[in-house]
């Protein structure tokens, strides 16, 4: 068709073993090795008392890791979509704001952003909102004033700050994915939609975005996998994700090997499974074309 497909971004782990008729040497040996390693590790975890001990302790963090990643990712999609649409907007103000956001975030390491948003950004925003509340109360808008002054710095938990930080960061990355996806749709699609009487936003909603999102789904999936890994960074905020719990375990028992091997295997399990899902999705989308 006339729509150009954007270059598929390589998934973290490439798996091409699902198609039949592969010669012996083309079999995904690395994948079998990965499964063997996984089986070996699980045997060790279940039979070796120290590993089992570490696993039981560290798995407490799994829920936090998954929840943090999921919530942050959903928010990041919203940020990314808005910023991506902003990047292609003809409105100078919106366009430049979106560009500023993307360039600012992409130029700063995620770890630094997490520190900054948690310890500088959120408190600054809170004191601004609080001051606005006082200002409104002074002018007799007591209801709004009460709402705005109700939040204090302690009310925003570190996990919320971690989620905000991840969402803001990944929003900038996703914005570029959405932008590229939208721009990959042939110009004639917008023209055809407009010629039928649709407004810009109707054309975006019914014609451009459905195609663009479909084109970028694999890239979005890969960023989700990347975010699972980057969620380990929130451990610096003492959020008890698996990384933080593993650190605590290692620190208190001095079983560093058990703690970090178990941790690595947990991340690997999550990312491999997710990568496979992304590739299945990609395959299904391709089959539809």
């Amino acid at each position: 068709m006339l729509t150009e497909q954007p270059q598929a971004i390589k998934p973290v782990i490439e798996f091409d073993g699902l198609s039949s008729k592969k010669s012996f040497r083309d079999l995904p040996w690395w994948f079998f090795a990965l499964i063997l390693i996984a089986i070996g590790v699980f045997v060790v975890i279940s039979s070796n008392e120290n590993y089992n001990d570490a696993f039981v302790f560290i798995k407490i963090g799994i829920a936090t890791t998954i929840r943090t990643t999921l919530i942050a990712y959903v928010i990041a999609i919203l940020f990314g979509l808005m910023a991506g649409l902003g990047r292609i907007s003809k409105n100078v103000v919106i366009n430049n704001l979106a560009r500023l956001y993307v360039e600012l975030i992409r130029g700063i390491p995620i770890l630094v952003l997490i520190f900054f948003i948690a310890y500088v950004g959120v408190p600054a925003l809170l004191s601004f909102v609080n001051n606005l509340g006082f200002w409104l109360s002074d002018r007799g808008v007591g209801v709004l004033g009460k709402i705005f002054t109700a939040f204090t710095n302690q009310d925003i938990s570190m996990i919320s700050r971690a989620i905000i930080a991840l969402a803001v960061t990944y929003g900038a990355y996703l914005a570029e994915i959405f932008r590229a996806g939208i721009q990959s749709i042939a110009k004639g699609q917008m023209e055809a939609a407009r010629s039928l009487g649709m407004s810009y936003s109707q054309a975006m909603r019914y014609v451009i975005l459905p195609q663009a999102v479909r084109n970028v789904l694999p890239a979005l999936g890969n960023d989700f996998v990347a975010m699972v890994k980057d969620s380990s960074l929130v451990s610096v905020l003492a959020v008890r994700d698996i990384t933080q719990v593993a650190r605590l375990y290692a620190g208190s028992t001095f079983r560093f090997r058990e703690a970090y091997i178990t941790l690595a295997v947990l991340y690997l399990t999550m990312t491999v499974i997710l990568s496979l899902l992304v590739q299945l999705l990609e395959r299904r989308l391709r089959a539809h074309d």
């Binding site: 004639g188 039928l196 009487g197």
Partner: peptide
């Protein structure tokens, strides 16, 4: 005016060289 443009465009059918059907 965007609104007026959209209304008039709905009254004018257009056929393109490259068809521009919606592939999805």
């Amino acid at each position: 005016a965007a609104k007026q443009l959209n209304e008039i465009r709905a009254e004018i059918g257009m056929v393109f060289q490259l068809f521009n059907l919606f592939p999805h």
